[in-house]
Amino acid sequence: MKSFSEIETTVKRASRAAGYSWGIAEEVGKSIRLSELFGFPAIKHLNQYYQNKKKENFEEIKLINEINKSDGSFFCPIILGVNFIDQVKNLEILKKCSVENLAYPLLFLPFLSRASEIIGKKLLISFDDCKFLLNFNVSISSNIWDKEMSMLAKKVEISFLDNEDNFSDQDWKNLYKLAEDTFVEETDSLKEGAAGAGLTDND
């Protein structure tokens, strides 16, 4: 098994050799390491992307907007990813954005994951029948993690999720009630003697 340190170093060098600046190559190294750590076949997709990049032109998205359409060719997932991280604090306000024609969407995921940590919000990305929930760069949930993933996505939608509970108030109340069974009912003597502070604070 390759160590994650080997993965990061090799990806960084390969990305530089594929034509990216050292600064971008560092970002790709970190992101692919993360993706592999989460269990996604990022090395495989990156390899295929770099092979294709020699033959095809991929469009570089610069300023990300609410709707991002290409001129017919596919967007580079790496430049999109790096710019998404850089611009995420502006994009957050939009609540939603979409990208049409994205090459190797799996390669975009780790950048989104890091962006989720930066803004402290969960992100949801969907394309074709795939959905991924990016959880503050701690984990990525997916409905297709063990299936082959498409190399080209016609339309990718990204949603910035509000920080809300995943459960109902009633679920919480029920659980809290159960937790209360670990508390001790205070008698008058406990009220006087067991707390740190006094009963009045009029001094």
């Binding site: 990216y20 600046s21 600064g23 971008i24 560092e26 790096v82 710019n83 611009q87």
Partner: peptide, 17 residues
């Protein structure tokens, strides 16, 4: 803003960091 600067100056990204 640095995010705008980096769009056109990716060759300097490593030193901006």
């Amino acid at each position: 803003k640095i995010n705008k600067f980096l769009i056109e100056n990716s060759d300097l990204r490593h030193v901006v960091r």
